[in-house]
């Protein structure tokens, strides 16, 4: 295996495109090294992107935040402005692994590892986040939900990689929240998860919402019926029940060692309700 640490995006793209064997990106490495250890992947080339300009920083841009692909979970948790604007995204990213893993793991890595249970992905999708894709040609911006293709697979083409993720500007009375269910209190993979991002009008009525679900389908689910169930409401109990039902209906999970189909469908609705309540309160809504 070759290890390269290019200094420019163009050089990284050239290395990745030129490699005839298996090429992989290294950012935080918390998934990559596990896969290498287990023999799941044996890269011929590993391109460390942490020296590329902008990959280690969080920068304000157009009122929003551009977060480099090498920014760790711990760095996210230390950015007070980001936490205030996107608490759900930050709490989702901070749920990945342990304190130690937080020292290294990145949201872009979480996305590109393409696990259906990735914690930050539903939160990013609910937030309407976009990633910047680099490659041989010009870069392009792509909605987060367009990246995963299935468990372990992305829609990125050979030679392409993500350099940053962008979270848009926030207005007043907006908030997000993310919840996952795990059997322990820490150190587990989500059995089911839900992210809710909403904005309220002056009267506390939900104006707009995005609800995204994790670990209940091959890829993250952007659940429009769930959003519709709460838009125009003050998140009364009836709206919450409709939200939960919509999430459970949209869930197409599998039975595995972490949970059954039935359990995941039940719990994803419970989590969506609870996340919606948190987001609503954070946005200043009062019931």
């Amino acid at each position: 295996m070759r290890y390269e640490k290019p200094q420019t995006v163009a050089e990284a793209a050239r290395l990745l495109s030129a490699e005839k064997g298996v090429a992989r990106i290294l950012a935080g490495g918390t998934d990559m090294l596990v896969q290498m250890k287990s023999g799941m992947v044996e890269p011929d080339l590993l391109v460390d992107i942490k020296a590329l300009p902008g990959t280690r920083t969080i920068v304000k841009e157009a009122g929003g935040f551009r977060i480099g692909a090498g920014v760790s979970g711990a760095q996210l948790s230390e950015d007070a402005d980001l936490k205030a604007a996107w608490p759900g995204v930050v709490e989702a990213a901070n749920l990945i692994g342990s304190t130690q893993v937080q020292g290294r793991c990145t949201m872009v890595g979480n996305l590109c590892n393409a696990s259906p249970a990735a914690d930050s992905v539903p939160a990013l999708v609910a937030a309407g986040a976009k990633v910047r894709v680099a490659g041989r040609g010009a870069g392009r911006d792509v909605a987060v939900e367009e990246i995963p293709a299935g468990p372990g697979k992305t829609k990125l083409k050979k030679g392409e990689f993500i350099t940053s993720v962008f979270l848009p500007a926030r207005g007043a009375r907006c908030a997000d929240a993310y919840l996952r269910f795990i059997p322990r209190t820490e150190m587990d993979i989500a059995v089911a998860s839900a992210a809710v991002n909403l904005s309220l009008d002056e009267k506390g009525v939900i104006k707009d919402a995005r609800v995204a679900l994790g670990a209940v389908a091959p890829t993250v689910v952007l659940c429009e019926p769930a959003a519709k169930a709460i838009i125009g409401t003050r998140l009364d109990d009836a709206a919450l029940e409709k939200l939960a039902a919509a999430c459970s209906a949209a869930a197409k999970p599998i039975d595995d060692k972490r949970g059954s189909v039935e359990y995941r469908k039940d719990v994803v609705g419970v989590l969506a309700k609870r996340a919606a309540r948190i987001a609503y309160t954070r946005a200043g809504g009062q019931k």
């Binding site: 290890y3 490495g29 090294l33 250890k37 590993l46 460390d48 130690q100």
Partner: peptide, 16 residues
């Protein structure tokens, strides 16, 4: 710790 940041050394490459 790597530059003061707590990490698992099994999840860091030596070259890093």
């Amino acid at each position: 710790t790597l530059n003061g940041r707590l990490v698992c050394s099994c999840l860091v490459l030596a070259v890093e």
